[in-house]
Design a protein around this nucleic acid. Structure first.
Length: 669
DNA sequence: GCGGATCAC
DNA sequence: TATGGTGATCCGC
């Protein structure tokens, strides 16, 4: 609202001035519930002092600079628009706004419930001595939730504990205990179900209810329903919650935040009321508009409130992608999203762990084994098989990288996962990382059936074709072509059986969401749902038992046998060459084939050198298969080493990361 | 399909 | 000492 950072924001103000902390934008300093009367200047200063100079901080600065460049670019684009352009885009925007307006639906009454400081409140319930004392759920490195006493000090969710303790030395830390939260969450849902058996759970502590019918049947207004529901939740759990009522979910969510904690706000189903409400609403309150989007909208278009989205709509349509512009306009009109289907399918499953940064390959390999085991277990629990595996790395400097392979067969066993994960990781070595993650996506339509859980209710809508098992790991391996990972994706995918329900709601997404799209809840037709909760409690058991069995990474590293495969097609060759360029250099220094030493910075020389070996290999090959090969310097490699002959600025080794051009993001072509 | 990024909780 | 984990989506290749 009156946010400390809203003053001269986005002008590159006061950098290096007497108040450097003002330019350090964090997620947790934005004014939210319970932050009234907080000395924001002091909080901001402490956060800055604690962070300054750290690797994390430096990365934040890098990202910030990147965003500022985007803003600059967009500003230039706007400035370049001619009068004629503006007239045109004014028309485009106006037409769309009329259409959007016509789609306005005021027939439903939505209620959003949000538990107050949920985790903290539950912990206080189970340990009443915490009552009235500043307390946070989480650890020294990260806080999940802080109670309202702690919030008075500026302590907030997503803030690292050691900073929170600086802000509030008496702060009590309580470790997270998801079993407890799930238990109480279930209790609240018992109450929700009374008012809407098909309610949509957003997470453990919030839900959307369509209360249209209850209001009608019982002939009571929404305010009374909200009161009653909150009282019911309190009676059932001893916990307080807040509620918001509005014609759509997007607005209901905004409303539940207004009188938090232990309050409610009703926005009537009336067009004027909605427009008035939205006119002064800061854009950051909208679900889907986060720190970066807010920054851009302010910096480029000087948009601070939702109403201003309509005022600037011609510029939005001129410079942003159409769906993005459209979302902002619909927000300006106070519209929600179209109804989402009752049943939603999980699209990926993943796990990741942070540890103290290391470049010890044996250690990294061990982490990978553990992750693969855990992921496989989770997948089997859910009966999932997928064909895309993604490795995520966070370097010691907090840069995040992902590397993916899409396979021809569906996998779920830890052996399969590990096999491919190792290849992906190997290509990145040497590297110092602080986090490794694995994700599997592109599921086979149905459960993999390895060990079906009889107690698990199946979703009837699923297509259960006889093909289901064909691709699963229970079948014998097909020829292992996997190392030419990218080439595989070029092969036509065998009769893609997409039983994944591929619905696409134009109003769901990054900028197109009212917040429930990230729901991990599968809501059944009968109203029963299953919740995927982060099972932190389970990790310890996973870790034990995998402490040994780490095979040396080094041992498998010498192979350049990628090139020995004889019947690779042209595409496969280029890709294997791409792999080779990354695998060729032992310890990123020494050629594994001839022993010549070339430091990573000699990018051109190294490429030349690998070309040499490649040509050598191919010549041998060509004597067998008759296929000409022209070493091409113009082809870009997928591994990020862009080949530009003259530039030594491309020295950036992969370790240091590559930076994509600014102009791409957010800009319409 | 891949990779970088944003967002929410 | 020290800045999380899971899942989803979008954009531009």
């Amino acid at each position: 609202m009156e946010g400390a950072n809203s003053g001269g924001d986005g002008d590159g103000d006061s950098d290096g001035g007497d108040r450097p902390w003002q330019s350090y934008h964090t997620v947790y300093t934005t004014a939210k519930a319970g932050m009234e009367g907080v000395d924001k200047e002091k909080v901001q200063r402490v956060v800055y002092e604690m962070s300054k100079g750290s690797k994390y901080f430096q990365n934040e600065e890098r990202k910030e600079a990147f965003i500022n460049q985007k803003i600059q670019n967009l500003r230039i684009q706007c400035a370049k628009l001619t009068q004629a352009d503006l007239v045109h885009y004014r028309k485009v925007a106006d037409r769309r706004i009329v259409e959007l307006e016509a789609s306005r639906d005021l027939s439903r009454i939505w209620l959003h419930v949000d538990m107050d400081a949920f985790y903290a409140a539950v912990e206080t319930l189970s340990n009443p001595t915490l009552q009235g004392k500043p307390m946070a759920v989480g650890s020294m490195s990260m806080i999940s939730t802080a109670n309202y006493e702690a919030r008075k000090f500026g302590v907030r969710a997503a803030m690292p504990g050691f900073i929170a303790r600086k802000l509030c030395p008496e702060l009590i830390f309580v470790p997270t205990d998801f079993k407890k939260y799930t238990y109480y969450s279930d209790l609240t849902r018992k109450v929700f179900r009374i008012y809407d058996p098909n309610f949509v759970a957003g997470s453990l502590d919030e839900a959307y209810l369509d209360i249209t019918e209850v209001c009608k049947e019982r002939n009571v207004n929404s305010e009374e329903i909200a009161q009653e529901l909150r009282a019911g939740v309190y009676e059932e759990t001893g916990l307080t919650c807040s509620a918001g009522v509005a014609p759509n979910r997007l607005l209901a969510k905004v409303c539940s935040d207004i009188n938090k904690p232990n309050g409610q706000y009703v926005l009537p189903n009336d067009r004027m009321a909605v427009m008035t409400f939205v006119s002064s609403l800061p854009i950051r309150k909208i679900g889907g508009i986060g720190k970066v989007t807010e920054h851009i909208l302010k910096g480029v278009f000087e948009i601070n409130t939702c109403e201003q989205m309509l005022e600037k709509s011609s510029y939005l349509y001129a410079v942003l992608s159409q769906p993005t512009a459209e979302f902002f306009c619909s927000v300006g009109l106070g519209l929600g999203q179209k109804d989402s289907p009752q049943v939603r399918f999980r699209k990926s499953i993943s796990n990741e762990r942070t540890f103290s940064a290391t470049e010890d390959e044996v250690l990294l390999h061990k982490k990978l084994v553990e992750l693969a085991e855990m992921l496989s277990a989770d997948m089997q629990k859910e009966g999932l098989c997928g064909r895309t595996l993604t490795l995520k790395l966070k370097t010691a400097s907090f840069e995040v990288r992902t590397r993916a392979v899409t396979l021809q067969k569906y996998i779920s066993s830890s052996e399969d996962i590990l096999k491919h994960a190792k290849k992906l990781l190997k290509a990145e070595l040497p590297i110092s990382v602080r986090l490794i993650g694995l994700r599997v996506s592109q599921f086979n339509g149905d459960k993999c059936s390895a060990t079906p859980d009889p107690t698990q209710k199946t979703i009837t809508n699923f297509i259960t074709s006889g093909d289901v098992n064909r691709n699963c790991s229970s079948f014998p391996d097909v020829a292992d072509l996997d190392f030419v990972s990218d080439a595989e994706t070029n092969l036509s995918i065998a009769n893609g059986q997409t039983s994944q329900l591929d619905w696409r709601d134009p109003f769901v997404g990054n900028y197109l969401s009212d917040g429930d799209h990230q729901s991990c809840i599968v809501q059944k037709n009968d109203g029963v749902e299953e919740v995927q909760t982060p099972s932190n409690d389970a990790t310890s058991s996973h870790y034990s038992g995998f402490t040994e069995g780490s095979t040396s990474f080094q041992g498998q590293f010498e192979g350049i046998n990628v090139m020995n495969e004889s019947k690779l097609r042209e595409g496969a060759r280029l890709n294997s060459r791409c792999q080779e360029t990354t695998m060729l250099w032992l310890n990123d220094y020494k050629c594994s084939l001839c022993g010549i030493e070339l430091p990573p910075s000699f990018v051109e020389e190294r490429l030349e050198h690998s070309d040499f070996h490649l040509a050598e290999k191919l010549q041998k090959e060509e004597s067998r298969i008759h296929q000409p090969y022209v070493p091409s310097r113009s082809r870009n490699q997928k591994d990020g080493i862009t080949r530009q002959s003259k530039s030594k600025k491309q020295k950036l080794s992969k370790k240091e990361g590559k930076y994509t051009p600014i102009d791409s993001f957010f800009v319409k072509k």
